[in-house]
Amino acid sequence: MSLSALTSQPASDTSTTSATVLPLKLKKPSRLATRLIPLLGDIAARVVPPTIVIAVLLLVWELLCRKQGATLPPPSQVFTETYDLIVDPFFDRGGIDKGLFWHLSASLQRVALGYALACVAGVALGTLVGQSTWAMRGLDPIFQVLRTVPPLAWLPLSLAAFQDGQPSAIFVIFITSIWPIIINTAVGIRNIPQDYRNVAAVLRLNPAEFFVKIMVPSAAPYIFTGLRIGIGLSWLAIVAAEMLIGGVGIGFFIWDAWNSSHISEIILALFYVGIIGFVLDRIVAGVASFVTRGTAAN
């Protein structure tokens, strides 16, 4: 045994070293050619079309709004008028006279808080409704009615209840984003295959183990669909809610700019709102595809 191991050791060593050195030298330049160039081509294929479309749209906008009597500023004017805001998003002159970074971060904090609460409560309620027929019969009609209430309709009521803008805005985010989370979670739980339940039963998993090991991974694709719709709705609602409650926040920034007829600032703010909404959506989608890898395929 040991003898054969000894004799085979050096033989395999030499063969591996000679086998690794030669191809490496040969492959180095070709790898660059075969991987990097297609990658660059791929990037170009993704970047060039939107760049062209954006350039054309900006040009059309510029031409349309340059004419006498145009009500909206052309992009060149937007840029010059908001140059200070773009280059210095961090200034703070007290009150609501702050850089865009502070407005956006205030809005994001409200969304983060309201959305986080909605995630926890939504998954919990969705699990209850998905798992218990009785809870579904009792709660589903209520959910179906309440979810059609527009986000802003909740604001006066929550102002009356909380007596303050901050918690009211957070509540509006919460109540807006919770419905798709509840409904999608419930569907996911109800769609757990009987096979998985049987496996859990044979193994005698207790309810906590069943929740963590079977329910959540099995329903994860559905839950994340709800979470993704929820984050989108949250961001939609925050701008509207902040317009009404005032204070620091991108919503009130827009409203304030309108009151001061700073149309260029509104356009800049809309641009940021769009970008951040997009990034939030991509973050949740990224987490979803990371967490649910392997679940979809069966």
Binding site: N198, V199, P217, A297
Partner: peptide, 10 residues
């Protein structure tokens, strides 16, 4: 042992 294996895919 179930007919359709019933392994947890994740």
């Amino acid at each position: 042992v179930f007919q359709n294996h019933s392994l947890l895919p994740w």
